[in-house]
C-alpha cells in the first residue's frame, strides 16, 4: 500500500494530526483523482453508519448479572475468611510473644524454657567431662621409645677405632650439662617425650 493510499484512509477516518491533514488537503485541491478516491471511500464509510446495534437478550444479561452477584458474594466470603484467619494469626502471635516475654522477666517456670536450660546445662557438663578426661589421659602418658631406631654401639666395639670412639663418647658426656629450668608441664601438655636418634 502506497503512502498516498494510507493517507487517503487516514484522512477519511480522521486519523491524521492537524499538520498532516492540512498538507493532505492541499494535495486534494490539486489532484482530482485523489479527490474522487477520497469521496468514494467516504461514501462507503457513510453507509457503515447505518449498521444496527443489536441488543443481547434480556435473560442473557440477567444471568450474567446474577453470576456477577454470586461471585461477588463468594469473593466477599473468601475475603472475610481470610481477614478472620489473619486476625487470628496476629492474635496468636502476639499472645505467644507476650507469654514468652513475661515468662522471662518473672522467672515463671516454663516447660519450653526448662527444656532449653536442661539442654544447655547438659552440654556444659558434657564439655567439662571431656576436659577432665583429657587431663587424666595426659598425666598417664609415658615416654615413647622408638625401638626400631636404637643404636648398638657394641657392634662397633671390635674395630680399631674403638679407642677413638670411646674418647669421643667420653667427650660428649663431658659436654652434657644438667637442666637448670626444667618445665615438666610442657612434656605433659604435648604428651610426647623425645628420645635420641642414631642419625
Amino acid at each position: 500500500m502506497s503512502k498516498m493510499d494510507t493517507d487517503c484512509i487516514k484522512y477519511v477516518l480522521d486519523e491524521m494530526d492537524p499538520s498532516e491533514r492540512l498538507e493532505f488537503e492541499r494535495k486534494l485541491e490539486n489532484d482530482s483523482n485523489l479527490l474522487i478516491e477520497v469521496e468514494s471511500i467516504r461514501r462507503i464509510k457513510r453507509k457503515l453508519q447505518s449498521l444496527p446495534l443489536v441488543d443481547p437478550p434480556k435473560e442473557l444479561t440477567g444471568s450474567i448479572l446474577q453470576k456477577a452477584e454470586s461471585l461477588t458474594k463468594k469473593n466477599w466470603n473468601d475475603r472475610f475468611h481470610l481477614k478472620v484467619s489473619m486476625v487470628a494469626a496476629v492474635l496468636a502471635l502476639s499472645v505467644s510473644t507476650g507469654v514468652l516475654l513475661t515468662g522471662e522477666s518473672d522467672n515463671i517456670s516454663n516447660p519450653l524454657q526448662e527444656n532449653q536450660q536442661a539442654t544447655i546445662q547438659s552440654t556444659f557438663e558434657g564439655g567439662q567431662g571431656v576436659l577432665e578426661q583429657q587431663r587424666q589421659e595426659t598425666e598417664r602418658i609415658q615416654p615413647w621409645v622408638d625401638k626400631n631406631d636404637v643404636l648398638y654401639f657394641g657392634s662397633q666395639s671390635g674395630n680399631s677405632n674403638y679407642a677413638n670412639f670411646d674418647s669421643a663418647l667420653q667427650e660428649s658426656y663431658r659436654k652434657l650439662s644438667p637442666v637448670q629450668h626444667s618445665s615438666p608441664g610442657r612434656f605433659i601438655d604435648r604428651g610426647l617425650h623425645l628420645t635420641g636418634s642414631g642419625n
Binding site: D5, I9, S40, I41
Partner: peptide, 19 residues
C-alpha cells in the same frame, strides 16, 4: 498500524465493489 489501515482500506474498497 499500517497493516490495520491497509485492511480497512481494502475492506472499504471491497464493499464499494460489492455495492
Amino acid at each position: 498500524i499500517n497493516t490495520a489501515l491497509g485492511r480497512m482500506r481494502y475492506a472499504l474498497i471491497n464493499l464499494r465493489k460489492m455495492f
